[in-house]
Design a binder for these strands. Structure first.
Lengths: 155, 155
DNA sequence: GTCGATGCAAACGTTTTGCACACTG
DNA sequence: CAGTGTGCAAAACGTTTGCATCGAC
């Protein structure tokens, strides 16, 4: 495990470089922290928190600071690469903007289910028709009780 | 303006007393702070924040502390009297549990629209059918862009 | 060399908690 | 008088910011 600044292949180099190209085009610079955060985002499970991403990055680059993660997450969100969502309480979750979908979050056990667009189509249509409101289906969570907790009658 | 513990009539005494009955039944005690918070909840616009409710209560009882408000809001939520929602960032909003409805929150200007149940019926049904997930329609916010901001093309 | 990005520490806004005292029932 | 509720101060939590330095281009 060499401490080289160029990390081992992870199978996402291509996508990472594509985003870095965007960053460069904006006058941004390609730094180690930025590249590694991107890799963490592609590797990590969806819905990673800033803290989790920081930990993942720090495995290879222990000096990358949490505030750098936040700053880069902001930047990537401005570029439209990622999106963040607030699930009930606790920290926000970040995930890639591709494959838009909403989330069903269990208030009791905290599990989150990725909900296909289809679930929201009616809501999206009605909100537009009745209120002129454009729903951002990638950026919200529907709260309730998952099958397990509902069955157990847990509060 | 007498500093009497019994406040002036507000037109909600009946509902307030009803809830206080619940509190008593649970072994809880009826305090000034508790009664006044309840009145604030019935009088206030829906979606009041803890801070706003504290301010409202403090008009009559300046010594009621914000932490007392939070503790009582928790209690009332446990009793099922109120519900809270997180609209994007910022503080949570509290409102009475009666008249269930979701919210459309504009990411750009922050305006919140009360959405009738009807908008969510399809979502509720599908979530139940496909995932066994019971949506809590009183406790969530759908994020997006309101008509005005969408038209203005504001980000 | 320029200017954007970083590490660090410190501030921020919201909410929670520990404690001694006050009040309800 | 028992035990719940309160005021207060301080901590906790996730996130943002100011600043001096570092590093990409």
């Amino acid at each position: 495990m060499t401490p080289s600044p160029t990390p081992e292949p992870t199978g996402h180099e291509h996508q990472v470089e594509e985003v870095l190209e965007l960053v460069r085009a904006r006058g941004g610079r390609v730094t180690t922290a930025r590249r590694q955060l991107l890799e963490a985002l592609f590797e990590a499970p969806p819905h990673a928190t800033a803290e989790e991403l920081a930990t993942a990055v720090q495995v290879r680059s222990p000096d990358v600071h949490l505030s750098t993660i936040y700053r880069n997450l902001d930047e990537l969100e401005r570029l439209g690469v990622i999106v963040h969502t607030h699930f009930g309480h606790g920290p926000a979750s970040y995930h890639l903007a591709s494959s838009p979908h909403g989330h069903l979050v269990c208030e009791t056990c905290g599990v989150t289910i990725e909900a296909p667009e289809a679930l929201f189509s009616e809501l999206t249509t009605l909100a537009k028709e009745r209120f002129g409101f454009v729903v951002d289906s990638r950026h919200f969570a529907v709260v309730g009780r998952c099958a397990t907790c509902a069955a157990a009658g847990r509060e």
